[in-house]
Amino acid sequence: MAIRGELRRTGFFGELKAARYLKKQGYKILERNFRCKFGEVDIIAQKGEVVAFIEVKTRSSDLFGMPNEAVGRDRRQRYVNCARFYFYGRQIDCTVRFDIIEVLVGKINHIENAFTA
């Protein structure tokens, strides 16, 4: 299911903003839109020994609730699976964390360790 048009543009814009924010925070972006057969990870970034798998949620208004509320159980499981896939064959010598970045009308809210495996 591909998202097209206006919505896709909003999302893309949000991810861009998030990546910029992360860089400012001293993260090194490892992957953007990492795709595998389990799904897609918006951003994989590293800071020190922490590798963060980040879901970016962009909303143009909070009329429908805060963005992080839109990350349901399936989405979390998808991220965990993607992370497993990402580290398949590599040595995990780092802490793997799952974050959510909310981008709401230009404001950024970074929730570290939003969920666990």
């Binding site: 965990v80 995990i92 802490t95 793997v96 666990t116 495996a117």
Partner: peptide, 13 residues
């Protein structure tokens, strides 16, 4: 005995 061990890896409990 309550043992707690913390390791690097995917965050979990």
């Amino acid at each position: 005995e309550v043992e707690a061990d913390i390791n690097r890896g995917m965050t979990s409990y």
